[in-house]
Amino acid sequence: MSSPVVTLEQPRVSLCGGSALLLEAEGPLALPTQMGIWNLTDEIRAWPGVLDLQPGMNNLLVVLDPLEGDAEAISARILARWAEIPRERALGRLIEVGVVYGGEGGMDLMELCEKVNLSPTEVVALHSAPEYVIFAPGVSPGFGYLFGLDQRLFCPRRKEPVLRPAGGTVMIGGAQCNLGAPRRPGGPVANPTGWYVIGRAQDVPVPFDLAMDPPNRVSLGDRIRFRVERIEA
């Protein structure tokens, strides 16, 4: 059966510019694969010619020095290490957040229900059942991309981004879901997104604080569980 999501049979490294590479892992989105990605990230950090690294969803962006980084040689080295890197690692702490699904804070719940052909009660039950794992950093410092979404809730991103209020948003996009950080004082009131906002979390912990060293207060591998506060029409 064909999947709506890209699945590779073999891992591959592709160019992400003249001086950046993207390793994409083989197989369906999986936790052991991601543990390998995290382990490889730690290892590659020390390689010469590598400036920065960013794990994605079963993939890894490797930013090279534009003058010194040899894309061809480093590609080969990444693939060789990927074949051997251990795919196990301890997970982090559990964070539990209460969510009000639907209503004003989850304005896209009904639209998502239509897309996936389920009732609001069913969507909320499926969404709040698993323990999600913070897989990869998101577009801004926060809780990142979460793994564990029930595939019955997979829903392609919108064709055109829409503006959605910032702060504690619980969203679904493609085969992924996430949790928005609390709105930063003075920060944007709304953000453009192609994802569906199905709820709003109450009392979200601050995930990133520059007054702390290191500033991240959640880490890749930490777990998140959504507790249903209520469902609003």
Binding site: V5, L22, L29, N59, Q176
Partner: peptide
């Protein structure tokens, strides 16, 4: 058209 997995962007 296939739905992509999110990844880092430069």
């Amino acid at each position: 058209p296939l739905e992509m997995r999110s990844h880092g962007i430069v």
